[in-house]
């Protein structure tokens, strides 16, 4: 399927918001970390770059990232036709969008509570 970059980001966003839970941790700092690590690893996986899974923490992020990368490939066959630069741009746009939905644009008043 072709379509604008925005449409493509929307398809990936839809998958994340419907199928995933990792983006909804309860505090701003936690969500930022989740988004950065998991989407960052997904980006690396889609670009065929090595991903570190040395620590249990990294391995846990990787589990969500690898599941998502596989799902993206199955659901969005157009990914196979994209260049590395395009995939990088797509994932940067997705990261920005998920950060907006869950952090910067979120209406959740508990996100900045000092306590967990």
């Amino acid at each position: 399927m072709s379509g604008s970059m925005q449409d493509k980001i929307a398809q990936l966003e839809n998958y994340i918001m419907k199928k995933c839970l990792w983006q909804f941790h309860s505090r701003t700092w936690d969500r930022k970390r989740q988004n950065e690590r998991i989407l960052g690893m997904t980006r690396q996986l889609l670009l065929g770059e090595p991903v570190s899974t040395e620590t249990p923490e990294e391995r846990c992020y990787w589990v969500d990232a690898v599941t998502m990368a596989e799902a993206f490939k199955v659901r969005c066959p157009w990914l196979a036709d994209m260049s590395r630069e395009e995939i990088a741009g797509l994932m940067d746009g997705l990261y920005e969008r998920i950060d907006f939905l869950t952090v910067t644009g979120s209406l959740n008043q508990e996100l900045n509570d000092q306590h967990y």
Partner: peptide, 26 residues
């Protein structure tokens, strides 16, 4: 203790399968 947290869905064929697979992947 540094123990990571993996959120899962235990209900439904596809979500449960995906959850078990994530634990397996770990």
């Amino acid at each position: 203790y540094g123990t990571p947290r993996l959120d899962i869905d235990g209900f439904g064929f596809e979500p449960l399968g995906s959850s078990l697979r994530k634990v397996g992947l770990f």
